[in-house]
Design a protein around this nucleic acid. Structure first.
Lengths: 151, 151
DNA sequence: TTCATTTAGTGGCATATACCACTATTGAGG
DNA sequence: CCTCAATAGTGGTATATGCCACTAAATGAA
């Protein structure tokens, strides 16, 4: 097969996923821009909000995100006063996270914009299609790629 | 609705997409690790390879990536000697990109690992399912979210 | 109790990715 | 030819995200 006829990235599951994520991220970010939050930040604030003062490890696990990555991502939100952390009194290794009052206000503001983006997306792709897509993505997130132990 | 019963991120198309992308990215990165390339880099090298000494803008457009982001992403690959750039003689604004011989060797090495990851993914989710997913992701990448002009 | 092990986070470093302001080059009018 | 608008990239800055080495705290075994 000559180089000119090699298939494109269309065959790579990972590349396609990242490409779609860039596209959709740009859209959600655009809509959320008036709030000053990125879509990732809005999602993180929401995840903290629905948790019961979740531990960092728990948040990271929910989001399938590296714990240290979560720590980094949290920093601007703490700096801006939207989030605060405190040690769990029963296990001081554990650091719990909660929204500040300003964080809650900001999340409310961002959620209104989120609804706009979400609605627009579903108008364009269809509500059913969107639900199917999310289910497929949730399945991927739940996959176990480990090879079964040879034992 | 009380905070405890609020739905999770499962409803957000963008959050689910990012989450799945993190998961799959970690998997492909793991498999590609022996090559020293990240999956994003392997994908970028491949995109350059199948292009005809593509211009940066053309690559960015294919990948739905910001042009400046592409410039940044290219730097480590240039530094490591896998990629080189040159001005288009007919339009000196345009910078074209090509693989070096070492880049081609490295891409070959990475593609072997990529096949392993790709195959493993398709073994787990099913070949059909994977193709459907890629098609859905390609559709998303092609969407136009602009509101139709009021005219 | 004491020590090795496991668990939870931190900090440093590197890549991924975006937006903005700026520069260089081209092209279209006048 | 000259100016002005559009096009293509660059560099700076900021967030997103991962890995690794390290620290602190809890836990289990001797």
């Amino acid at each position: 097969m000559s180089k000119d006829t090699l298939p494109g990235l269309i065959l790579c599951n990972n590349a396609m996923l990242r490409r779609a994520a860039r596209k959709l991220g740009q859209f959600y970010d655009d809509v959320l821009a008036p709030s000053g939050l990125k879509a990732t930040q809005q999602g993180l604030l929401y995840q903290i909000h629905i948790g019961n003062e979740p531990a960092m490890g728990a948040i990271a696990a929910s989001l399938i995100m590296d714990l240290s990555a979560l720590g980094h991502t949290l920093k601007p939100l703490i700096r801006d006063g939207y989030v605060e952390t405190f040690a769990d009194p029963d296990d001081r290794r554990i650091k719990r996270v909660r929204l500040t009052p300003q964080g809650l206000v900001k999340l409310d503001e961002a959620m209104k914009l989120w609804h706009v983006a979400q609605q627009r997306f579903e108008d364009v792709v269809g509500k059913d299609q969107a639900a199917k897509l999310r289910a497929a993505l949730d399945d991927i997130a739940a996959l176990d790629f480990d090879l079964p132990p040879a034992s």
